[in-house]
């Protein structure tokens, strides 16, 4: 159902997305048998391709040339892919989107080399864009994503967290790459500074809303929908927004503490999920996601009138309201 919705939202860009898919395949081609197998695996796993789509849409505010813009859209998706491969090593994850991870398929070391290979290919594509500002934005983004992940590891198992800690983390972990996708699409097409700034802000707010929803779904979606056990974030020590809210409930707090101390039994996991799903935590987290979504939509209203505005609004709404 969700996939169908996304397909419909992208329907106006099908030919451009096909170009991006083909380029991703070319970019990941390697002389190494294992790297090829790993990359093929990643491509087959699919993904929402949100980052390249935002690059394409943002580029419509300037001189749009798909042959030029693909050189920004492809690296953004590649950087996202590479970071997932490395994240799976950090999380010791065997499955992603229901498929074996690269580290499970081979080992951690091959996953590291696979990620490094993909990062290199991303930067190689990006160098077809000569504007130094675009490179400075992307380089800063890459550093900030790492800093965000380092903070996430520092914050692991820490119960004393406030909303500021959480926002600081997800801004760098997720929102900044989506913000940069919008910003870079606009920069590469030569859009005005005002439009670049508005799109960057739009991407940032959408990214924040998207990550909050992702963290909610980790508790509310089924194992099958997630392609991994629900509650995985907390079991790995990551205290996300629904858990921060749920900690306020004296009945749920001990369950969260036990989960963090881990490992917990299947029955305990079910008990935890049931308690959090029933608590106001999910509703509160949804309300915050909606706030960010509203801010994102407001930014669109400041953009020049363009047919693409509707697509930005529709995709933002999809991301902020998706069910898994």
């Amino acid at each position: 159902m969700e996939k169908m919705k996304l397909k419909m939202l992208y329907s106006g860009m099908k030919s451009e997305i096909d170009i991006i898919e083909k380029e991703l395949e070319i970019a990941l081609n390697s002389s190494s048998q294992f790297l090829n197998e790993a990359s093929l695996h990643l491509l087959k796993a699919g993904g929402k391709r949100i980052r390249p789509v935002f690059v394409l849409l943002s580029a419509k505010f300037g001189h749009y040339d798909i042959q030029q813009i693909k050189n920004v859209a492809v690296p953004l998706e590649l950087i996202h892919m590479a970071s997932l491969v490395h994240d799976d090593v950090i999380d010791n994850a065997e499955l992603r989107r229901g498929r074996e991870t690269v580290k499970a398929q081979f080992n951690n070391r091959v996953a590291m080399y696979n990620g490094d290979f993909i990062f290199a290919k991303a930067l190689d594509y990006m160098t077809r864009i000569e504007n130094p500002k675009a490179h400075q934005v992307l380089a800063n983004t890459m550093v900030e994503i790492c800093v965000g992940e380092i903070i996430q590891i520092e914050d692991k198992m820490v119960l004393q967290q406030n909303l500021r800690d959480y926002f600081r983390r997800i801004k760098r972990k997720t929102a900044i790459l989506i913000a940069s996708s919008c910003e870079l699409g606009a920069i590469a097409s030569g859009a005005s500074d005002e439009v670049v700034l508005r799109l960057k802000r739009f991407g940032y707010y959408v990214g924040m809303s998207f990550q909050i929803i992702d963290d909610i779904l980790d508790f509310t979606a089924t194992d099958r929908q997630l392609g991994k056990p629900a509650g995985s974030d907390l079991m790995q020590g990551n205290v996300t927004l629904p858990a921060i809210y749920a900690l306020e409930d004296d009945a749920i707090r001990p369950l969260i503490e036990k989960t963090l101390a881990g490992p917990i039994s299947e029955g305990e996991r079910m008990q935890l999920l049931k308690a959090i799903r029933k608590s106001p935590a999910i509703q509160k987290a949804n309300a915050l996601s909606d706030l960010y979504l509203e801010k994102a939509l407001k930014e669109v209203s400041y953009l020049p009138d363009h047919p693409v505005n509707k697509s930005l609004i529709d995709i933002a709404n999809f991301m902020g309201k998706r069910k898994f």
């Binding site: 930067l123 800063n140 800093v147 992940e149």
Partner: peptide, 19 residues
Amino acid sequence: VLAGDYYSGRYYATLAELP
């Protein structure tokens, strides 16, 4: 894992700054 990625980002930032 993150140290390697961080150093890689710093490398790119250094060359992007030159540019």
